[in-house]
């Protein structure tokens, strides 16, 4: 039994949600980015149905601009648990002409990955997609349900959300609709790290402090990579950084840090003065309602 009543309560709640949705939907899928939240989610999903096999598919929406360390970790983790991985590729979406790649120094595939995700959900007939999103991440997420309805176009209609009462999750849908399910809704960034530490879960190396070639943009440090076009004035330099979130190389900022162990990350997170998305996600700085707009279009 967990020595921490708080983490034990969050764990039990997440497992309850996983079992409720898997019991009542036919084609559930877990979205796995190999980021810390989806690592916890995958761990909980395995435990929820053990010693039975994982009764859901695992899928990654790959923008083609992910950190190579993260992709390596992703493949290794899936091999370890012996489950196949579906990869929905943004490159493929672009190649098929379903979306157009942005160009220029601020190009990002963050937005068009919603097209890839929705296409993959339709292609495989998934009726419930689990994600590791948490309500403490963003103002739009703060109003999100645990079990959230998406219409035939995959859109989130904040006005048309089902009230959630007690622990009675309504998982009914009409044909063509699907559910997004967030078992970690009530977890905070610190809870996720505390849990990773308690369970000894492995995370990709980019979460730990390392030397990296970076450049500064809009007050953030971005990794120098072939995926990101730099402006003339943006020069790279080498420094010790780590990443607080794992996303596209084009929009995920690094923070200066010397935290080299999980304990040090927990210590750093517990005294952080900026939210993880505020510190490291260029995509959320676009407008006051950036996350809300992307969610409406089908973003996770």
């Amino acid at each position: 039994m967990s020595t921490n009543a708080h983490l034990a309560a969050l764990e039990s709640e997440a497992i309850f949600i996983l079992r409720e949705v898997v019991s009542t939907r036919e084609r559930p899928v877990l979205l796995f980015s190999a980021g810390k939240d989806s690592i916890v989610l995958l761990h909980l999903a395995l435990e929820a149905f053990r010693p039975g096999r994982l009764p859901l598919a695992v899928m990654h929406v790959d923008t083609g601009h992910n950190f190579p360390e993260v992709i390596d970790f992703r493949d290794r983790r899936l091999r370890e648990i012996g489950e196949p991985l579906l990869v929905a590729s943004v490159e493929e979406t672009i190649r098929l002409g379903r979306a157009e790649d942005e160009r220029g120094p601020r190009a990002s595939r963050n937005r068009i990955q919603s097209v890839t995700l929705l296409d993959a959900i339709a292609e495989h007939g998934f009726d419930a997609a689990f994600g590791g999103a948490r309500r403490d991440e963003d103002r739009a997420r703060a109003k999100e349900r645990v079990v959230s309805l998406r219409d035939e176009l995959g859109q989130w209609d904040p006005k048309n959300q089902r009230p959630e009462l007690w622990s009675l999750y309504n998982t009914r849908i009409k044909k063509g609709e699907h559910l997004r399910v967030f078992p970690l809704s009530n977890w905070t960034e610190l809870d996720v790290w505390d849990y990773i530490r308690e369970k000894g879960l492995e995370v990709p190396s980019i979460y730990f402090a390392h030397e990296r070639e970076v450049f500064e943009r809009d007050g953030m440090l971005l990794a120098a990579s072939p995926s990101v076009e730099r402006l003339a004035r943006e020069t790279t330099f080498s420094t010790t950084v780590r990443f607080r979130t794992v996303g596209d190389m084009t929009c995920t900022g690094a923070i200066r840090s010397t935290a080299g162990t999980i304990d040090e990350i927990v210590a750093e997170t517990s005294v952080a003065t900026i939210t993880e998305r505020g510190a490291t996600r260029a995509d959320d700085k676009l407008s006051e309602a950036a996350m809300e707009d992307r969610k409406r279009e089908g973003y996770f």
């Binding site: 109003k143 006005k159 809704s185 905070t188």
Partner: peptide, 27 residues
């Protein structure tokens, strides 16, 4: 929070906030 609330003058029913003190977590 939401643009939809501001633009359409509606309120989404519940927003969740999280905070912690050294003794307790709150939702």
């Amino acid at each position: 929070g939401l643009r939809a609330e501001r633009e359409q003058g509606i309120t989404i029913d519940v927003a969740w906030r999280y905070f912690a003190t050294p003794r307790r977590r709150f939702v």
